[in-house]
């Protein structure tokens, strides 16, 4: 199963990064959001660390919706989905493969978003950055697990992006809150409650939705029309 997932992820990354440049759209949308929100500051004013972290995660969330739509639409063109369903591996391999590809793409996008939020929103990275980096990874894993599960639900649908974001965003709230709090600490804000409890919430979310992905994915990714 892991081998099949790996091949699927490698194929998807190749299609998105090398051919077609599918990530560009997601990147541009995220950057645009960061820039537009930078307009909420007066000249010479800097945004609060928490505000900046919120905008960073908002950009990431939108980017994630586009990424998973793109990943699942790859199989819609010539119904390759059926081909994946026929492969001699559990269908969860598709969930894992798409999740891995999505995680890599999201991390790549954040590699751009992070400096962009520092620049546009006038932040600087504080001493708490190592724990924030760990947190970033934990949150991204959860986003990828849930995104890979729900990304499959819009298969064969028009208006996928809006549908996916409506269902996905509210479910992501615990992760986003965790990301924002710890992220704002990295942008040098005080965090009296400490990062550990937030990491606990993010880790619990990851575990829960990895489990949900494994159990529920086979229902949602099927050949039945």
């Amino acid at each position: 199963m892991v081998a099949a997932s790996w091949h699927i992820a490698a194929k998807d990354l190749r299609l998105c990064l090398v051919r077609g440049g599918g990530l560009v759209q997601a990147l541009l949308l995220g950057l645009l959001l960061l820039f537009v929100f930078s307009l909420s500051q007066q000249v010479g004013e800097t945004m609060s660390a928490q505000g900046a972290a919120a905008i960073f995660w908002l950009s990431s969330a939108f980017c994630q919706v586009l990424v998973f739509n793109m990943l699942y639409s790859l199989e819609e063109v010539n119904a390759s989905r059926l081909g994946l369903l026929l492969m001699p591996a559990p269908v969860q391999a598709v969930w894992l493969g798409k999740g891995l590809a999505g995680l890599v793409l999201l991390l790549l996008a954040q590699l751009i978003f992070l400096p962009a939020s520092v620049v546009f929103l006038g932040q600087h990275i504080g001493a708490a950055w190592p724990q924030a980096l760990l947190m970033l990874f934990l949150v991204d894993v959860g986003m990828a697990a849930l995104g890979s599960l729900l990304g499959a639900l819009s298969q064969g649908q028009a208006a996928r992006e809006s549908l996916l974001s409506i269902v996905l965003f509210p479910l992501l709230v615990p992760l986003l809150l965790a990301g924002i709090r710890v992220g704002s600490a990295a942008f040098a804000a005080a965090m009296p409650e400490g990062a550990a409890s937030w990491m606990g919430i993010a880790a619990a979310f990851d575990a829960l939705f990895c489990g949900a992905g494994i159990v529920l994915f086979s229902f949602i990714y099927a050949g039945d029309d």
Partner: peptide
């Protein structure tokens, strides 16, 4: 037969256009 020995050929070509 095991899943690996099952071949299915339909209208859909399963082709990834950019590969």
């Amino acid at each position: 037969v095991e899943a690996a020995a099952l071949g299915y050929l339909g209208h859909a070509t399963f082709v990834y256009p950019t590969l």
